[in-house]
Design a protein around this nucleic acid. Structure first.
Lengths: 230, 230, 230, 230
DNA sequence: GATGAATGAGACTTCATTCAT
DNA sequence: TATGAATGAAGTCTCATTCAT
């Protein structure tokens, strides 16, 4: 290796290291902010705490985010963008029954969202929605609507194929959505809904919900099953 | 009636009225506080706003509540006291199938809690649980546990009577709880879960959930499934 | 005096005292702010200093003025409103030569503005004009333009009556204005223009300027020049 | 020229250029700082802005100036050094009447100071004098006093030669100084004194002031008043 | 020398809480 | 009891200044 090359790389290495530092900062801050916002709420989280958890000083935080509110927005954006594109594609190509799809949907949702830190966003949005109308609109459009549309599509397929009863999907989709929402909220709300034991057994909980949804609560043998006036 | 008696009664009436006024103060403040805490969160609600909405001055609020935090605690306590005694008793004497019970449970919960301002407590607790550990423990003990116990008892009865499949109730109860939680959160979270259309049709939503829970999503091959009168 | 009257007045007295306090606060704060802004500039003056000089706490200042900037605006408004109405009227009815008028104008300006704390506004505006465009526009319209119009009217009268040479008033008015501006700036600028000795003898300075303006620097060979009584 | 010499010179030229660049840095920073300080005031000007306008980074500014305050002092010193030596000498050898001298003094002041960026120093000093006592003393000694002494000498000569009336120069000098101060302040104060139209016609304004000063406002009945070359 | 990421003191502003009236 | 003017602790945000690169 020539000297010039060496020097060049050295210089490059230096700036790269520094560069990497700079590039990493926003992410570290967003990570810290997500945790704290979820844990304590937006207002109760002090900017300095976020900075401290990210290992930087107060000033640095404001170097990367114009304000605490912008930080909040960035946290939400960071954790919800572009997941649905991928998911939708996955389901376009899914082969199997609608029941399998629904089951896969809920379990994989748990693996990819529910079990991760990203699940905190749900609680975060719920608590702060009223104070950030623009973020709320954004969330509604980018998360809620695509998510519900996906569930609806799966269920519609089930109905079309004769796997599912004909249901009013305007309400039936919530049989799938509610347990998931409920689970992540249980996780992030200090036992305010659901009990703590739930969290250690989330997979079982999911499985049970899938089971209930797909099969129904009632004994089905030959019986005189419950007639829900739907 | 003697004049003196008349005067006396009049006086009494006045003072009663004033007394009532005075006694009503804390309640008015709690009402105002509940609304605002639910709407904007604890930290984002200013003491002065609460006072203003209750029609008194800032000073008066602190005459009745030592601090904003005490106000919060009082709000929660006020809205969750002793409903379960009554409910439990009601179910002790309920006659009918377990399916009918469950159906009745959910619809009457909507009428008595979900559709009232009390439903805001759920969101409130969820958002602020982390900042009020003692309240959270209290809530867990006074609301969550009795509530889940009630659901569990109903479902257990269904299993015992052969109306329901044998279920792992540790998880199955959430099929009932989740939709209710989900509904009230939808109501108080600016469309952050569920869509706004849900709220105008809460009864239909409840009915649909009851139906799904009791019947199951799946086509019932030979079934005339369990008969829940929703 | 009846007891009720006494009680009534006592109550009234109490609230009046408190009321007076409240009414006085803004004025006290504006006074303090004027002094400090003039002395140290807008940015270098801390809100707490202003409050302290007015004998109140930091918080109180923000009780009366939304922000430091609003305080600044209020200071400017407070000290320049409605002086010119009075002045203009005075000059409408003035009887005497234009020279006497001009002389009177400058000396009375000194008495009413130049010698008072209000003169600090000039320096204040000068320093901060660039940072407060709207205040500057306001000042231009409410102070600069009426002031120059008044001078111009007086001089025009002098020309019309044959007392003064025909002058291009677009420039000549500044012979009157400049010395006054200069004087107040000398006063508020720590000797940055003019020397400190000037200030102890402002009246003489004014007189000398009047004299020079009216008579001219030059020896008047045969003249009986307009004799302003300096 | 030998090749080595050529190379040498070339090298020299390069390093000279680089040297010049390096040497020029402080000057560029001072230039940028003068503009910004004049325009926005000392406190409202951010160090980074100054650096940016000078085309360097924030860090570089502090390489050359210990602090923002030192930068301010350097700006003032840089722009008031040693002009008066030259001026005084010029006037020692000036031939002509005192009136001509005064006229020349004012017009050439405009050309050399008033019309240049240096005029900004006047406003700068005026605004910040209170916050920089040592600079103010320096300015008083290096600028104010020599400047006033020069004017005084000229006027004294006029009196001595019988061109001017016997005047109290302690005050009369301000007839000359005030219009000049006034003009540069008009220029730098966003219309807070004088009107914007003034600035496009500064020469006419100067001429008019010279005229007024030398001739006087009044009608000169029989006189041949001193004719200032307006 | 030059850079610009990082710092942290310091200023503005808010708002729960007090207390004289 | 009720008020609302006053307070000052606490939090957000800025920016002069430093220093590793």
């Amino acid at each position: 290796m020539s000297i010039s090359k060496f020097l060049c790389e050295k210089t490059s290495a230096l700036s790269v290291k520094r560069e990497r530092r700079k590039d990493a900062r926003p992410g570290e801050l967003l990570d810290a902010a997500l945790d704290l916002f979820v844990e304590k709420g937006f207002a109760a989280t002090r900017a300095e705490e976020v900075a401290a958890r990210a290992g930087v000083s107060k000033g640095t935080l404001f170097l990367y985010f114009q304000s605490k509110e912008e930080l909040f927005k960035a946290v939400v954006r960071e954790n919800i963008s572009g997941r649905f594109k991928e998911w939708n594609e996955e389901f376009e190509t899914f082969e199997g029954t609608a029941a399998e799809m629904l089951s896969y949907c809920m379990t994989s949702w748990w693996d990819r969202v529910g079990a991760t830190r990203a699940s905190g966003i749900t609680k975060l949005m719920m608590s702060e929605a009223g104070n950030f109308p623009d973020i709320t609109a954004f969330y509604q459009q980018e998360v809620i609507q695509p998510g519900q549309a996906l569930i609806r599509r799966i269920m519609q397929r089930g109905i079309d194929r004769g796997e599912f009863r004909p249901l009013n999907l305007d309400y039936a989709i919530y049989s799938v959505i509610a347990p998931m929402i409920f689970l992540v909220l249980s996780k992030h709300s200090a036992g305010t809904c659901g009990d703590p034991a739930l969290l250690g057994n989330a997979e079982k909980y999911i499985a049970a919900q899938v089971d209930t949804i797909l099969y129904g609560l009632s004994v089905q043998p030959a019986g005189k099953p419950a007639k829900g006036k739907a």
